[in-house]
């Protein structure tokens, strides 16, 4: 169980997150939708401690931590159960594909090289880029880089994976295959929070859709409820802008 409570974050006098809370069950796939600037990325960054929140807490399993006052040790402890897939991949540029996937195992978790390599190769096989294992990130297409990004996350066996617009930097023809891979991750039963603009993905994969705007959760519920019959005016307005006409039933 992942419980996000009362997250607040401002940048100077810009209030980006105004008290955001989410309860997420094990194995749930939560898709966060919302207009640009609504605070989606900031929320993911706050709960992964990449950004220090001004308030709020996080509960993972039976451990709770303050997002504002977490110590280094607590942060490391929580990050052990968490992985992040970035919009622009952020693969380690000075490491090969295989080294990218092994890094967290060997350096951070001190797993013996041989075992780490086996696990990394297995993960690369699973995401379908095993043939590129000795290439450097700069030699890969965006789609291949994001596959490696996903392998790097999955190999650590995290309880939760956070995806921040994992396909929005990709060429359109590559989006589909990466989304398919993310669906495959979902089938493994890992808890996922996915920020995306791909509504059809939300419809198909999400156990829950959260609509955010202006730093608050405006509305949340099953894909059916949020995508087909939203209650809030802001949600309707957003969907009418992003959904193709024939998909929009309201």
């Amino acid at each position: 169980m992942l419980e996000i409570k009362n997250v607040k974050k401002s940048f100077r006098d810009l209030e980006v997150l105004k008290d955001v809370s989410l309860d997420i069950g094990d194995g749930e796939v939560v898709v966060i939708l919302g207009p640009s600037g609504s605070g989606k990325t900031t929320l993911l960054r706050c709960i992964s401690f990449l950004e220090k929140a001004d308030g709020g807490s996080l509960t993972l399993g039976d451990k709770e931590v303050s997002l504002k006052k977490a110590t280094k040790k607590q942060i490391n402890e929580f990050r052990k159960n968490m992985a992040f897939v970035f919009q622009n991949y952020n693969l380690f540029a000075n490491k090969t594909v295989l080294e990218n996937v092994m890094e967290g195992l060997t350096v951070a978790r001190k797993i013996p090289k041989q075992e780490a390599m086996e696990r990394a190769l297995e993960a690369l096989e699973w995401v379908g880029v095993i043939n590129k294992k000795d290439a450097y990130p700069s030699e890969l297409s965006g789609g291949q880089q994001q596959r490696v990004g996903i392998a790097r996350a999955v190999v650590l066996n995290p309880e939760v994976i956070l995806f921040d617009e994992p396909t929005s930097a990709l060429d359109p023809e590559l989006v589909g295959e990466v989304l398919d891979l993310i669906k495959k991750v979902a089938k493994r039963g890992i808890t996922m929070i996915v920020v995306t603009h791909e509504i059809s993905f939300a419809e198909e994969v999400a156990s829950r859709v959260v609509f955010m705007d202006g730093g608050v959760v405006v509305e949340e519920g099953t894909p059916d409820k949020i995508l087909v019959s939203p209650k809030e005016e802001r949600t309707k307005e957003f969907l009418s802008r992003v959904l193709p006409k024939d998909m929009y039933y309201i």
């Binding site: 401690f49 990449l50 992040f84 380690f92 967290g104 951070a108 790097r152 650590l156």
Partner: peptide
């Protein structure tokens, strides 16, 4: 060195020093 490199390092569990030694300094050197 792009700050995303550092963040990705943290998220796979590296410490600050490990991030510098493994990721940032080698890239900065080039």
């Amino acid at each position: 060195v792009d700050k995303g490199q550092k963040e990705a390092g943290y998220m796979v569990g590296l410490s600050k020093w490990q991030v510098y030694k493994e990721i940032i300094l080698p890239q900065a050197l080039t």
